[in-house]
Nucleic acid binder design. Sequence first.
DNA 1: TTGAAAGCGCTAACAC
DNA 2: GTGTTAGCGCTTTCAA
Lengths: 335, 335
Amino acid sequence: MAKPRVRLKEIAESTGYSVNTVSLALRGSPRLPEETRALILKEAERQNYLPNHIARSLKNQATHTIGLVLTDIMNPTITLAARTIEQQLANAGYGVMFAASDNVLANEVKALSRFQSYQVDGIIIYPTNRNETDHIAAIHDSGMPILALADVSKGKLNVVAVDDRMGAYKAVEHLISKGHKQIAILDGAYSLGHSDKVEGAQKALSDAGLPVENLRIINPLGSSAAHGFRAAQKALEQSPRPTALFATTDSLGIGVLNWCINNGVNVPGDLAVVGYDNTEASEYCSIPLTTINYAADKVSSYAVARLIDMIEQRDVIEDKIITLIEPDLVVRSST
Amino acid sequence: MAKPRVRLKEIAESTGYSVNTVSLALRGSPRLPEETRALILKEAERQNYLPNHIARSLKNQATHTIGLVLTDIMNPTITLAARTIEQQLANAGYGVMFAASDNVLANEVKALSRFQSYQVDGIIIYPTNRNETDHIAAIHDSGMPILALADVSKGKLNVVAVDDRMGAYKAVEHLISKGHKQIAILDGAYSLGHSDKVEGAQKALSDAGLPVENLRIINPLGSSAAHGFRAAQKALEQSPRPTALFATTDSLGIGVLNWCINNGVNVPGDLAVVGYDNTEASEYCSIPLTTINYAADKVSSYAVARLIDMIEQRDVIEDKIITLIEPDLVVRSST
DNA sequence: TTGAAAGCGCTAACAC
DNA sequence: GTGTTAGCGCTTTCAA
């Protein structure tokens, strides 16, 4: 059943040219007369030739494949980033291998070394833990172009990311402008060293002359609606009771909204809620959610463009470049 | 900066053995004495050797990579399937390349031929259109193991999927048992030839002695909460007005629930709503959603196991196998 | 117990 | 214009 694959050799034999000429023709070399080229192309078409990417990669020392290491792929914002990155890379002629670390460092390490072994031309990574990026930097130092999608600027990596510190600042600044003084923040990433959002929130408080203790940090142990639903009660049990809540993902925020609906807590009357990411769901949930727009498309485009730059000028020594995209506040009914 | 990669040659030179012996040692050949092996392993470790997967693939005619073609990766059920499949394959020592067709056939075709060119060992695919699978079958016939995650049993492909006809049957049977006679179904896949859910729903009606015309088919033009939100009104404008609605994804259902909340429609009093997929969100949304459990983990495990079987016994001629997993009803507050 | 040589499918330098 | 040859890094006969 399994037909042997068509190689250059087969085309060469049936056209009478050499393998080399066929290779040249298929890649559109100007050295060949139009006639020869057309003839070979036609025969290749007829035999349904597809180039053997593996052989080409071995020879060219380039696989035209990149590795994408994600943390929690179930987070819609990360899913969206993955989708956009895949599209952009496909357009640029690159294939994408992916792996999800699920925020477990060991998984991240394994995925990275698998990608190295697979000889990917570059890696785009959502790091699991911002304080543990040395293993990533080591791979980068060995000559692998790597781009991080989170602001690990303390490390040595190139970065394209949303400015989460600024985003959180805007979210909390908005709450403060509405008169709130006791604010809870739901943040599952804080414990993994991703402290930007908490820091941005704290800065908003202190810039407004409020004590940072007024921000109660609650770990929802995840980033989904289920986690938000379960953490909402804990947030409202704080003393003094918060009048506003900043959920660091929309999913968390939606979970909080639903808990409020089920428990007779009026939003925004009893509790104002701000989300983060501006996922599609935030607009169409029970109470349209005020949120921070995470421009996934922008991040992805920049990231892909930057990575391809790095790949194609591999040997040029470059300084690390940190690109932070400033996110905007989107005001809806929940605040 | 870019250090040249360590090859077998480097290890050979620094240990004094030949490339061949090093290769043997690293793969644990019993032909070598323990001492030699240990020595070589240690040196490989020291030099941080990682095998060149490309070279190995070319030689072995196997890449240990599979291609995953998805439709709408933003659909949480598909995301979950992707995640589980990646995990399972990684455990089995396979890498995963992915592409999303976004339900555009041309994208699917492109992705498939890219994967062929990349010499993947097998392909797992969520087909875009069930009536257009000949191009997939053609690749299968050329010797590529392919497994479909939707019931395209009319075609020639191997299948592991949830029995959506049965799932839809159970959903609508449940609504009928609650006394509903006028039912709307929101289904965006119907127009793409995925008619199982509609057919299952219709069968439930006729088995109950109700005319199939009592099922109003509405195309939400997508599968997300936003689409559900926008389609809800259209559903309730049908005449006679439906008293129950079957949303063929949970996201659609959640969109409907939220529209109802915003428009004073009582659920389940004025409108009973059933979803499909049993996503995490369905449990923690505004009104816990009755739904059909799509056992993504089961589907993924079976699919991966089956694909690996196909890969490893490539030359054995096998009949196509259709595995359909029967889904269960999960009753919550929305009905 | 170890090594030499051929070859996977392709590309590139160099002939002719 | 087109063909010959070597080689990418690895595995696998086959010898020694």
